[in-house]
Design a protein around this nucleic acid. Sequence first.
DNA 1: AGGAAGATCCGCT
DNA 2: GCGGATCTTCCTG
Length: 215
Amino acid sequence: MLEAAAASSTRAGALPLPRSFYGRNALRLARALLGKVLVHRVGGRTSAGRIVETEAYRGPLDQAAHTANGRRTERNEVMWGPPGHAYVYFVYGMHWCLNVVAAKEGQPEAVLLRALEPIDGLPLIAERRAGNRKTPVADARLLSGPACLCRGMGVDGSLNGADLTMGRMVILDAPPVPAHRIQRVPRVGVDYAGEDAVLPWRLFVDDSPSVSRRA
DNA sequence: AGGAAGATCCGCT
DNA sequence: GCGGATCTTCCTG
């Protein structure tokens, strides 16, 4: 399974998704991003993974979003800009999280990338993840969880605002995931969001071994 | 100026 | 299942 994904991702002709791909609401983008491939090149080394878990955060009307009620701050400024850029923020004093800005400029929506299936640069990913662990992790779980994903892919605050349609970190097109393989459940860790906490805006590929917090 | 809470992970029980 | 690690961001006074 992982081998098959790797073969397709490294195939010549896989192009970065154009900006127009991102110009839709965050829920639709969260769905469309499943199966696509995040690639990060740094210092001549490449790591890549297939997106298998996402969460949609829908701007002013979503109490779970950083931009709830139209809140605009220095931290979430990127969410207000054009789609197709990375919104990277720091949480819990130790972790980074990577989002993809959705919708159109002035409409602050984003998709949190929660898990990838590692498909290229396994040694590099394992090396990055080893730093804060005592016990080894199975390959399929190296990028399982939003903070694990950032750690393993080498994503930090320096990538906040990065253009994902070009540059050192991009998202490549890849075959879509069939609808019958996608599950929709409530988002993780948003109990503070009242009624919005139960919206089924966490999407994942149900047969992927890399999904975080499987029931 | 101060404090509370957070879109989490890890290791131990 | 639970709590500790660790610090930025934002809101309050």
